[in-house]
């Protein structure tokens, strides 16, 4: 097949799947949360209540798109676009199957880290541009949270990089043919999981939004589709972190030969998305100071120890 065509097909395929996943997640999350709380969840509109997605989209499109008169208008408009854009661009380096990747970069991990860091601009700018106290506090929290967790997010991946000997994600997946890196790098996995959650500001690390304290945090002033884009951005971010965990620690597309590789990948990713939703249902939100002190006092040293230990072991084995 023409490599350009193939890239195009993969790109479109991933984009198509992603956007639909983001939409379906609206239903999945509500339904699953309800089930975990002994409720039924949305079950009225259409089969299994699936049309809630359509209803939600219609609703969100037809709401009044209001820009507060006190907002910083250009930044206010740009902010939601950034989160969607960075999350989508981050996906370009994720291999969903052998050769099925938009951009087979040899510095894939660095690229991912770079773009996930760029995503923070979205929330910080939204918080600033809204010109409202809740939004501003939300934005500041997000900045502090990202700044703290970003540091060891990268460090926690270095163990994997040392084991695989490459920054290219396809090669990292291939390196797990013998054993998924989750076993040798369990500590790295846990740290990355936490850092990833913090990065996507999902519960329990949703301090920038914290409904019970800040109304809706950085997106308090957003309505209609601008709010909707934050929503979609968050789901895509969630999917990206799940995909990265799968790629880095759970053998990516590797699986039984009789199942097509992309399906394996999708299945694993989806399992992690469900796990995230379970976390949301089960774990309470920490205090902001607790969260930062864990990050700096425990997770960062642990990540360093993990890195040094892994490096030492690899050196010892190489000798």
């Amino acid at each position: 097949m023409n490599p350009t065509l193939q890239t195009l097909a993969v790109t479109l395929g991933i984009l198509f799947t992603l956007l639909h996943v983001a939409a379906v997640l609206i239903w999945v999350e509500r339904r699953l949360l309800a089930l975990l709380q002994d409720r039924l969840g949305p079950n009225r509109a259409g089969p299994l209540g699936l049309f809630i997605i359509v209803a939600d989209v219609i609703k969100i499109f037809t709401k009044e798109d209001w820009i507060p008169p006190f907002a910083d208008r250009p930044l206010y408009v740009i902010a939601p676009a950034i989160i969607l854009l960075t999350a989508l661009v981050g996906f370009t380096i994720v291999p969903v199957g052998p050769g099925m990747v938009v951009l087979d970069l040899n510095i894939g991990i660095l690229f991912f880290l770079a773009f996930s860091s760029l995503g923070i601009y979205s929330t910080v700018l939204a918080g600033w541009a809204s010109n409202s106290k809740y939004a501003l506090i939300g934005g500041l929290r997000m900045a502090a949270q990202m700044f703290s967790y970003e540091v060891f997010m990268g460090l926690s991946l270095m163990g994997v990089v040392i084991l695989a000997g490459s920054l290219n994600l396809s090669e990292i997946v291939e390196a797990q043919r013998g054993m998924w890196f989750v076993l040798p790098q369990f500590l790295g996995f846990v740290i990355f999981l936490l850092a990833g959650l913090a990065e996507t500001h999902r519960l329990p690390f949703d301090l920038p939004e914290a409904e019970s304290e800040l109304v809706a945090g950085f997106h308090t002033e957003y309505s209609s589709m601008k709010f909707g884009i934050f929503f979609v951005g968050e789901y895509i971010g969630l999917t990206l972190i799940a995909a990265m965990i799968v790629t880095l620690f759970f053998g990516g597309w590797l699986g039984p030969a009789w199942i097509p590789a992309p399906l394996v990948f999708c299945f694993k990713t989806f399992a992690f998305i469900l796990f995230f939703i379970l976390m949301r249902a089960a774990i309470p939100r920490p205090r902001f100071d607790q969260m930062l002190s864990w990050g700096w006092k425990y997770l960062l040293p642990l990540a360093l120890i993990n890195l040094i230990a892994t490096g030492a072991l690899v050196l010892i084995r190489a000798d």
Binding site: A34, L35, L36, Q37, D38, R39, L40, L278, M279, A281, A282, I283
Partner: peptide, 22 residues
């Protein structure tokens, strides 16, 4: 305790529903 609560909440998937289909 966090892991325990994850497990306990997970078990709720299989409980009886409280919702009344009004």
């Amino acid at each position: 305790s966090l892991i325990k609560s994850l497990w306990l909440v997970f078990l709720h998937l299989f409980r009886k529903r409280f919702t009344i289909q009004y």
